[in-house]
């Protein structure tokens, strides 16, 4: 059986990647000789933080999708759009490619991230016998795609500034924008806190 660094009392420094000798009892309080960061075998309280952040993001996903995110007022008329109704409008305006991009960034990515985070945490928590290779691939995938959810917020910041013409046309952000921003940040932090080595530790039990 292949051996872990943990079994030899070696911990990889989170900041610089150096292997540091730690005794198994001494989980923290030791510092990396190269960069002086605290070193521990695993990200401390990884699961608790990931659960808290993921559940908070899950709760905020509801207002982010139900409340209006953007209101386009043109000649005094206009109705507020939620994320999904904005995508549908783009699709109906024959802008299918843009509708797909916005849908992926604002709907598919946040939902996929939350589903994958819940799955990974359940695998570790309940010791589910899933393929560790595939779980690790999912973990890398959500790490990679997470940032693209910011697309909607950047677009809002551009639109509200450019289309700001008194009573002719105006774009205003809605309350969902803040909730959506919180979902993006919380899911990014949740993925950062999750330690994928906890998945592989199951193979050694």
């Amino acid at each position: 059986m292949s051996s872990r660094a943990f079994d030899k009392g070696l911990a990889r420094c989170f900041s610089c990647g150096k292997l540091c000798q730690l005794s198994v009892q001494q989980h923290q309080a030791s510092c990396c000789p190269r960069c002086d960061s605290p070193v521990s075998f695993r990200q401390s309280a990884s699961l608790s933080y990931s659960w808290a952040l993921t559940l908070a993001a899950l709760a905020l996903l509801v207002p982010a999708n139900m409340l209006p995110i953007l209101t386009v007022v043109s000649f005094g008329q206009g109705d507020p759009d939620t994320i999904m109704s904005g995508v549908i409008k783009l699709w109906e305006a024959e802008l299918q490619a843009i509708a797909a991009v916005v849908f992926i960034a604002s709907v598919a990515v946040p939902v996929a991230k939350l589903v994958v985070m819940l799955l990974l945490m359940l695998v570790v928590q309940l010791k589910l016998p899933l393929s560790k290779e595939q779980c690790t691939l999912l973990y890398r995938f959500i790490h990679f795609i997470g940032r693209w959810s910011m697309l909607d917020l950047f677009m809002i910041s551009i639109l509200v500034t450019v289309v700001h013409m008194g009573n002719i046309a105006n774009v205003e952000s809605g309350p969902a924008a803040l909730a959506f921003g919180a979902v993006v940040v919380l899911t990014m932090l949740a993925a950062d806190y999750f330690d994928p080595r906890l998945l592989w530790d199951l193979e050694h039990e």
Binding site: A5, K8, R12, K18, L19, Y139, W200
Partner: peptide
Amino acid sequence: PHRESLLACPDCDLL
């Protein structure tokens, strides 16, 4: 650990 002959995998801790 002072020798760079060993590395640990950041994702699965394999030595």
